[in-house]
Amino acid sequence: MMQVMAKPDLHRVPRHPHAWAVVLVLSQLAVAALWWRLGWPVGLPAMLATHAVFLWGVLVPDSGLFSPVLKRLPTSEPVVWLTIDDGPSEQTPAVLDLLDAHGAKATFFVVGERAQARPELLREIARRGHGIGNHSHSHPQAWFWALGPAAMRRQVADAQAAITAITGTAPHWFRAVVGMANPFVSAPLRTHGLARVAWSARGFDAVAADPDAVVTRIERGLSPGAIVLLHEGARHGRNLEVLALLLRRLDALGYRTVLPEAGAEADQWLEKTREAEMETARFPGPPP
């Protein structure tokens, strides 16, 4: 029998964006005390261990050490959340047409500067009923994880302002560049009411040029509620082939796409999902 899920909070904005600093100070005071009392053979490994924890929190994309992060949708229904990063790009119109052809919806995590360069594409994404998220303003791929507080604040705020000015609606969701979020991302997320989104299924389509291999990797992570990471505009130019193949596989496997949103819309989505699960539990179909 299918389990009915409890109602969770999908849209989790950081509540205590500076808590990490308190933890850091306390941990280093503890390290200093150990070093003072027991010497470097204990103090040095303790210092390295505490630093390793903070580094892990930055480098692991779905780490919630510095801020809450949504990794998958809480449902046992055969649904997935398609997320498409790095646009808008020259491929965006074709991406939209592919999604329309399969009756699929996606959230586009867009770059502020690219949205300003192609505002008509951003408006078209919204017009066709897709979601739009914040993916930084200039996409500093090599050093986003190492940005200081002022630079991080600008990356989030400038993208938020650009997207809002073009579409008239402020995004609810944020995805860190390359998924890596350092401690300084929490404060601007709280300021702008943004919640971090990671993923649970990816195929490395931003770098891998073989659509079959990419979709095979994505399929390994597919399950009810999976958040699928895709990209547009990659240098290899085969993102459209990846999307087309993935949409065919999702159709064949019986998966539908959903757009979970914030606030009341999230409540409505969760309520509909619970109702569907209750119906399935009461009237299960024939065994496969």
Rank of each mutant, 00 (worst) to 15 (best):
A213S: 00
A6M: 00
V228E: 08
A201K: 11
I227L: 07
D9S: 04
P68Q: 06
L44C: 12
S89C: 09
S63E: 05
V242E: 05
A276G: 03
D100T: 14
P183G: 03
A21S: 12
G131A: 00
H51Q: 15
L229C: 03
M278H: 06
A252F: 09
H192I: 07
T50D: 02
S186C: 11
V25S: 04
W145L: 15
V197Q: 07
I166Q: 04
L122N: 00
P14R: 00
E279L: 15
A264H: 07
A176D: 04
W145H: 15
T107H: 03
G263I: 02
P149D: 13
L250K: 09
D9H: 00
G203L: 04
P211W: 09
G233L: 04
F174G: 01
E265I: 05
G87M: 01
I84N: 03
W173S: 10
Q28Y: 07
M47R: 10
V258E: 04
F204H: 13
F109P: 01
L222E: 12
E241W: 04
L82A: 10
D212Q: 12
P17Q: 05
R175N: 01
V95R: 01
A252T: 10
G168D: 11
V228N: 07
A146E: 05
A209R: 05
A226P: 06
A46T: 09
A262Y: 06
L247E: 11
E113P: 02
H231C: 08
R248K: 15
G263K: 06
P88K: 00
A161I: 14
G103R: 06
R128G: 13
R274I: 15
G203W: 03
P45F: 10
E275G: 08
